[in-house]
Every structure is written in structure tokens, then in C-alpha cells.
Design a protein around this nucleic acid. Sequence first.
DNA 1: CGGCCATCCTACCTACCGGTAAGTATACTT
DNA 2: AAGTATACTTACCGGTAGGTAGGATGGCCG
Lengths: 224, 224
Amino acid sequence: MKRARPHASPSRKARPAGAPACDATVRGKLLDAAADLFDRKGYAATTVREIVAVAGVSKPALYYYYGSKEGIYLALMGTAFAQAEQTLVEARESAGSAVGRIFHLCARNYDLFRRNLKVARVMYAIYYGPPQGAPAFDFDAYHLRFQGQLRALLEEGMQAGEVRRMRVEDAMWAVIGALNIAMEVELCHPELSPGPAGLERLLRAVFNGVAVPAARPEKKGVRR
Amino acid sequence: MKRARPHASPSRKARPAGAPACDATVRGKLLDAAADLFDRKGYAATTVREIVAVAGVSKPALYYYYGSKEGIYLALMGTAFAQAEQTLVEARESAGSAVGRIFHLCARNYDLFRRNLKVARVMYAIYYGPPQGAPAFDFDAYHLRFQGQLRALLEEGMQAGEVRRMRVEDAMWAVIGALNIAMEVELCHPELSPGPAGLERLLRAVFNGVAVPAARPEKKGVRR
DNA sequence: CGGCCATCCTACCTACCGGTAAGTATACTT
DNA sequence: AAGTATACTTACCGGTAGGTAGGATGGCCG
């Protein structure tokens, strides 16, 4: 049986965050090391010993600040998604046409993604892949808000005569598809990165349509 | 130092594949178990002990047939991507308009994805995420072929007046974005699965355009 | 019949995993 | 001076990871 340590924190509780972490603190060094290693190896294949070795501190220091391996993962995700939420708030305040605001929302999201590639890559692997022993994190809270905001803009665009009358879900997924593929190329082929200009062209292709207006995509053009 | 076993295969060589594996053979049971566990937990967080427990065989039996944990992973990927290549071959033989054939290629790809969700989820995590200790597998061999085939069809469509004149790369990524998002919803929200009908609607949205033809998406509609 | 081979097994190996107990150093308070 | 709190450490714990040595079994063939 464990005896309580009179001078230690509860063993599963991470230290409360004090001043904002910066790179030179132990807390910050651990976070940076974890981000780098999770990005390069994935959550499950990264060991606590590696993280602390890269950070240059002892293993129990990680437990002191973050409580567990899971704790440092959740801290990473929490920080990144708080920034993403901030992007939504700022994009909501932008002005202009509905379509312009959709472009702006996507551009901001893409920009943030690119500035957080390490966490983004880990998120992608876990959100679209198996959990890998990582603790649950509510990615969908953010995704649903993004979708809601996009849907509202598309509906506004339909009201204003900028967006075609169609199922708003179809329009939404078409836009998200374009945004996602730009981000996915960033993840697996950074040398082919579309960049902001490429994302804009891609969105324009989706908004203007790939087909010549007179050409209706055939419903059943092939033998099945 | 190990002495060579006179009756065993070289320790790193998996047994040559004999008859096609079916579910009831040890080989097949191991593959199925691995697919299931890699899908549910990821490569790095799945242990060999778990795989063999699910398959109902001993651990060295896995080494006998596949040589290593990596070996069984590569066998899984190899099988799935061979099927995907076959899809490309079949779609290339289809007839109809360029746009119709693009729809058909996407529909076939989506269908195969849905029938191999387990392997697809693992592939997604590793292709877009960190390697997680998994051995290298040339996913891009297939992806580049798919892109090449799609690009050829788009160019054909431009020649035939079905597809707008634009950078063929933009058109290609727009189409792939639509296909990918349909697959990604399948991975993380199967209850929202677009299904083949939803994929077709999505592709139609992309081909027809999200914007009303007279409405040009603003190039700089918002403050930056 | 005995040897060979293929197919599997039990028991074991080394190295390593996440987490923890106990301790040390420093600063501050009473 | 003693006690407390904070920030870290060394050494250790129990369990487990991928892989392997040696063996058992059954079928086939000369």
C-alpha cells in the first residue's frame, strides 16, 4: 500500500498550470519534446523515457507536471484546440460576402493547421485512425462548431443568391473536402504544399464547378 | 549465437504463400485477427500476444507464417492494395463520357474502401499520421496511379468540352477532396455515411459548382 | 521402418514499458 | 530552528514487449 507523501501532490494530478508555459521551462520543454516525438513516431510508439531524454529532465518530472503520459498528450491537444476555437471566433467577426467569409474561414483554418503541423498530424492519425491507446479527446466539439459555422455561411449565401440551392450538407462537405485535401497534401507531401494561393484556387474550382456549365455529369455513364 | 534449425525456415522469412489464405486456416485467422486489432488499436498499440490470442494459435505460429509483427502488417497492406490496383484496372476499362468515368472511378474506389474499412483505417493513420513503428509501405505507388488516371480523365474531359479549362491539378484535388471527405466521414462517423448516393451528390456539387454561376467568389472579400 | 518435411507448440530470452517511493535542494514562514 | 511548499532527482517496481530454442505431431516417401 502506498503511503501518502506529505509533501507531494496527489499522484494522478498534474500540477496546476501557473504562468504560461514557454520553451525554456521544464513544463515547456516537455511539451515541445512530446509534440515532436508524437509527430515523428505516434503516441503509442513514443515512450516517456524518450520524451524526458529529449527534454533533458528526469522521468518523474513529467509525472510531476502532467500526471501521466496521457496527461501530456491531453495538454498538447487542449492547447492546440483552444487556438483552433479562437480561429472560429475571429472568423465569425469578419465581414464581407458569405462566400468571401467562407474563403476566409477556410484560409484561417488552413493557416493554423500549417503552424501546428506536429499536433495536426497526431490528431489526424487518431481522429481518422485507431485510438492507439491515446485517451479520449473530444475532437468533434471543435469539428461540429466548424461545420456549424460553415453551414450557417452557406445558408446565408443561398439566401443572398451567392450559393446554389442544394442540400446544404452537400455544399458543406464539398468545401470541407477541398480544405481537407489541402491539409492532407501538407501532411504527406509538404513539397507539394498548395499554400494559401493553392487553397484559394482549389476553393474557387469547387465554387465555380469543375464541369463546363452545359455539361451535366452523367448519372449513369458506365456499365456497373 | 543462434544455431540454424535444420528444419525451420530462415528466421526472418515468412512461409511462402501456398494456397490462397481463407479464414479457417491459421494463416487466414492470423490475418483477420491482425486486421481487427490494428483497426481497433493501431499498429504500435497492438501486441503479437493479442493477435495470436484472438486467432487462437501460439505466438511462434505467427512467426512461422509471417516472420515478424512487421511481416503480418505488410501482408495485410499488400493484400488490400493489390485489390485497390485491380479497381484501377477495371475502371480503366469502363466506357462512357470522361466525367461519367470519373464518377465511376470514384464510386469504385469508395466501394472498395468501404469493404476494407479495417485496413483503410490503419492506412489512413499511417499515411497521414506518424509511422508508429510500422515498416515502410509504398502507399504512394497506388495513390500516384490513381491520381494519374484521374488526371488523364480530366484532361480528356477538357478536350471533349466536358470539363472547364483550369489547372488540371486543381480539378484533380477538388475531385479527390470530395472522394476523401466521403471516405473520412465513413471512418469517423459511420452513422453519417454518405453512401454511394451521397458520394454522387457530392461529386455533382463539385462538378456543378457550389456558387451560383453569376456569383464570382470574391478574391479579397474580407480584411486580413 | 526411418528420415524428412511442414505445421504447429511450450517455455524461455533480453530488453523495456509506465509509473512510483523516497529523497534532495531551495525558498519562505512562523 | 523547524516546518512547509515547490521543483526536481535516483533508484526501483511489477509487468510485458517482440522474438527464439527446442520439441511434438502427422503425413509422405524410399
